Amino acid sequence: MLLRQLEYLVALSRERHFARAARSCYVSQPALSEALRKLEEELDVPLVRRGRAYEGLTPEGERIVVWAQRILADRDALKSEVGALRTGLSGRLRIGSVPTASGAVAQLTAPFCAAHPLVTVEVIADLRSDDVLRQVRNFEIDAGVTYLRNGLPDVFRSVRLYEERYVLLTDAADGPERRSTATWAEASRLPLCLLTEAMQGRQVLDEVFAEAGLEPSPRVETDSVAALFAHVRTGRWASIVPHTWLHVFGVPHGMRAVPLAEPTRTVPMGLVVAAREPGSVLARALTDIARTTDVSAVLDRQPGD
Score class of each variant (00 low, 15 high):
Val105Gly: 03
Pro99Gly: 12
Thr222Phe: 04
Val251Arg: 09
Asp74Ile: 09
Asp44Met: 10
Ala21Cys: 01
Ser97Gly: 10
Glu122Arg: 09
Leu190Pro: 08
Leu2Glu: 14
Cys25Gly: 04
Val298Ile: 15
Ser80Phe: 05
Thr292Asn: 01
Val248Gln: 13
Pro216His: 06
Tyr162Leu: 14
Ser158Asp: 14
Thr287Glu: 15
Val220Leu: 15
Asp206Ile: 05
Leu169Thr: 08
Gly88Val: 02
Pro252Val: 10
Gly235His: 07
Val48Trp: 05
Ala114Pro: 02
Leu36Gly: 03
Phe209Thr: 03
Ala11Asn: 11
Ala84Thr: 10
Thr109Pro: 13
Gln200Trp: 09
Gly103Pro: 00
Val132His: 00
Asp294Thr: 00
Tyr26Gln: 14
Glu62Trp: 04
Leu72Met: 05
Gly235Tyr: 03
Val105Pro: 04
Asp294Cys: 04
Glu62Met: 07
Ala125Pro: 15
Gly151Ala: 13
Leu214Ile: 00
Gly51Val: 05
Ala84His: 14
Val145Thr: 10
Cys25Val: 03
Asp288Ser: 14
Ala31Trp: 12
Leu36Glu: 10
Val123Cys: 10
Arg63Glu: 14
Asn150Met: 03
Leu214Glu: 00
Ala21Met: 02
Gln107Asp: 04
Ala173Gln: 13
Arg75Pro: 01
Ser239Phe: 11
Tyr8Ser: 11
Arg165Met: 06
Pro46Leu: 07
Val248Trp: 06
Ala283Asn: 09
Glu211Met: 07
Asp305Gln: 15
Gly201Tyr: 01
Leu108Cys: 07
Pro218Gln: 11
Trp237Gly: 10
Val241Thr: 01
His253Asn: 12
Gly96Asn: 10
Leu214Tyr: 00
Arg137Met: 08
Leu36Gln: 07
Leu282Ile: 02
Met269Tyr: 12
Gly213Thr: 04
Ala115Ser: 10
Asp288Ile: 03
Ile240Arg: 11
Ala125Ser: 14
Val121Asn: 05
Leu228Tyr: 02
Val273His: 04
Phe249Ala: 12
Leu194Ala: 04
Asp76Pro: 06
Ile141Gln: 07
Leu85Gly: 15
Glu140Ile: 02
Val45Cys: 01
Ala21Lys: 02
Pro242Met: 11
Asp294His: 05
Leu169Arg: 00
Arg16Thr: 13
Ser90Pro: 08
Asn138Phe: 13
Ile71Trp: 07
His253Tyr: 11
Ala68Leu: 12
Ala187Trp: 01
Glu7Trp: 03
His17Met: 04
Pro117Phe: 06
Asp223His: 07
Leu108Asp: 08
Thr170Leu: 01
Arg265Gly: 00
Ala230Asp: 12
His231Gln: 05
Arg256Tyr: 04
Leu228Ser: 03
Leu192Cys: 12
Thr58Trp: 05
Ala182Ser: 13
Gly51Asn: 00
His243Thr: 10
Ile240Tyr: 01
Pro278His: 08
Gly201Phe: 08
Leu195Gln: 08
Val251Trp: 05
Thr170Cys: 15
Thr292Leu: 00
Val273Tyr: 05
Trp67Ile: 11
Ser80Asn: 12
Val82Gly: 02
Val82Glu: 10
Asp223Glu: 13
Thr234Lys: 03
Ile124Glu: 14
Ala84Tyr: 06
